[in-house]
Amino acid sequence: MEVRVLRYFIEVVQERNISNAAKRLHISQPTLSRQLMDLEKELGITLFERGHRQIKLTQEGYYLYERAQEITGLVDKTETDLQSQKIISGTLEIGAGESTAIQPVMTVIGTLLKEYPDIKINLVSGDSDLIYQRLNNGTLDFGIIMGPEKLLNYHSISLPQKNIWGILVRKDQPIAEKEKITPQDLIGLPLLTSAQSKQQDVFRSWAGSLIDQFNFIGQYNLIFYARLLVETGACVALTYQNLINITGTDLAFRPLTPTVTDQNNLIWNKNRQLSNVAQVFLNRLTEVQ
């Protein structure tokens, strides 16, 4: 399974058409078709459901597409890192969840981008499972994890700011009249939260046994989509303060009481050597801590 062929495969998936992909790759359509058929034969699977105009991935095709993006991304990053050892260049790969508390990290990155024009930045949004996975496979240099996590396999730095928990709610909802929210206030309300926050001990400690009386109607990954549902009045969302700008909207944020906060930790893999650009970033962040 050659990386070159995986790049061909990715291009075909993104174009959804072999002819268009062949033009973009500057190869003939028969050559591209043959390369894909050889890949299917090598793997012993069918990657596409071929139609007259567009192709559709099989289940195995979807799996390979996801892995092919990781593989080619890692190859590109490795080549860039090896070619840029003598100068401060390359791509800094950082993954994080949603939090305004990571602004100090962005400030350092902004300074580096101005100081070293050859540096590029790739910001990946995701939950802790995604961040751990990509740190382990080498496609991320750093991750920013929110809340209490077991970090034995990672180096870590605690960032200064913390996240404040509360609810996002429509202003015309009765609970919005309260300045702060107690566990009792949430009993019976339709709640939207992230899978991580529901499982975290810090949140369960706040709610105590009352958490068993909470009506969790669903989960979200990004607060943007949760916000749209909250705006309908169908639920309230447990979230961090200041993740979205609600000025001039029908929404309000109400903090939990007693106050519930989450620590932010910058982490990186103990078993992987940092690229020069990643090391420069880490040194600069440590200086301003």
Score class of each variant (00 low, 15 high):
3 V>L: 15
4 R>A: 12
8 Y>K: 03
10 I>E: 07
11 E>T: 10
25 L>W: 07
26 H>T: 12
32 L>V: 01
33 S>F: 13
40 E>L: 00
41 K>S: 14
42 E>D: 09
44 G>F: 05
46 T>G: 10
51 G>S: 04
58 T>E: 00
68 A>T: 05
68 A>E: 07
74 L>M: 09
81 D>F: 12
94 I>D: 03
95 G>F: 09
104 P>I: 05
105 V>R: 09
106 M>T: 09
108 V>A: 03
112 L>G: 03
121 I>N: 11
122 N>P: 08
132 Y>K: 06
137 N>R: 06
138 G>L: 07
143 G>N: 09
148 P>H: 14
153 N>I: 08
153 N>K: 15
154 Y>A: 03
156 S>M: 10
159 L>E: 05
160 P>S: 07
161 Q>D: 08
162 K>F: 06
163 N>Y: 09
163 N>Q: 10
165 W>M: 15
169 V>I: 09
169 V>A: 06
174 P>C: 00
180 K>L: 11
193 T>N: 14
197 S>Y: 13
200 Q>V: 12
201 D>M: 14
203 F>Q: 08
205 S>F: 13
210 L>W: 07
211 I>L: 13
212 D>H: 12
213 Q>L: 06
214 F>H: 02
216 F>P: 00
218 G>W: 00
220 Y>E: 00
222 L>E: 13
230 V>K: 04
232 T>Q: 07
236 V>Q: 02
237 A>Q: 01
239 T>H: 05
239 T>G: 08
247 T>H: 15
251 L>P: 09
251 L>G: 02
252 A>H: 06
255 P>F: 05
258 P>H: 02
269 N>K: 09
275 S>Y: 02
278 A>R: 02
279 Q>I: 07
281 F>I: 01
283 N>A: 07
285 L>S: 02
